[in-house]
Write a protein that binds this DNA or RNA. Structure first.
Length: 201
DNA sequence: CGTAAGATTTACT
DNA sequence: GTAAATCTTACGA
């Protein structure tokens, strides 16, 4: 089954829920089940990094879809996005939370090496934590995301078609203007009731 | 060129 | 619950 990333961020985001993402950074495979994402729609979205035009940091979003966009935040953390939408449309989907289902030992080692982690639930709950678990840094900015059957550094597999997931939506987390602006764009998507969804603020 | 703010996480009061 | 860590990008002078 192919995963069509050539659509708008708000269209792709709900389909990513329940999908399996695998990374093979340093030849150490880690697989997670995505449970929480946020959509950022480029030029139409003041909260998106790409809203104010192309820069050295966000150039990846202006390229073709199906690649990774990784940025550094507050000097300490990395956050990973999936670049989507037609070329020239700087849309992206931020990965905010996931459940580690493969390479759990590797995930734990990475979390403990660059931070603190107490419970399995916190392993990949939160965008920066997820990036750590997957081993993603700015080095991987622009890396292509392939189909699961093809292998490669980064692969993604859609959830089973017959698997029903309860999708919940709401305002995005941590962006300024959480007033009417955020309310009119409930572009945060998560699997209802899943414990690996981040708390947000 | 200087300053302000950020798609966060963790530790401490 | 509140504050600090820490650095890059963005914007104003």
């Amino acid at each position: 089954m192919s995963f069509d990333l050539d659509r708008s961020a708000t269209a792709v985001a709900p389909d990513l829920l329940g999908a399996l993402l695998t990374t093979r950074v340093d030849d150490e495979p880690v697989t997670v089940r995505i449970v929480e994402v946020e959509a950022y729609e480029g030029a139409d979205d003041p909260a998106a990094h790409s809203f104010r035009g192309e820069t050295a940091r966000n150039r990846t979003m202006f390229g073709p879809p199906g690649v990774l966009y990784v940025y550094r935040h507050l000097g300490l953390h990395h956050c990973a996005n999936v670049v989507v939408g037609p070329a020239g449309m700087p849309h992206a989907v931020l990965l905010r939370g996931a459940e580690v289902i493969g390479g759990v030992d590797v995930a734990w080692r990475r979390r403990l090496a660059s931070g603190v982690c107490r419970t399995e639930r916190d392993l990949a709950r939160g965008p920066a934590r997820l990036a750590v678990v997957l081993g993603l840094t700015r080095e991987h900015d622009g890396a292509p995301i392939g189909e699961a059957a093809e292998g490669g550094l980064l692969t993604i597999a859609a959830r089973d078609a017959d698997l029903v997931v309860q999708v919940a939506t709401g305002p995005r987390v941590g962006i300024p203007g959480s007033g009417p602006e955020a309310a009119s764009r409930p572009w945060r998507f998560w699997i209802a009731g899943d414990p690996h969804v981040s708390a947000g603020r």
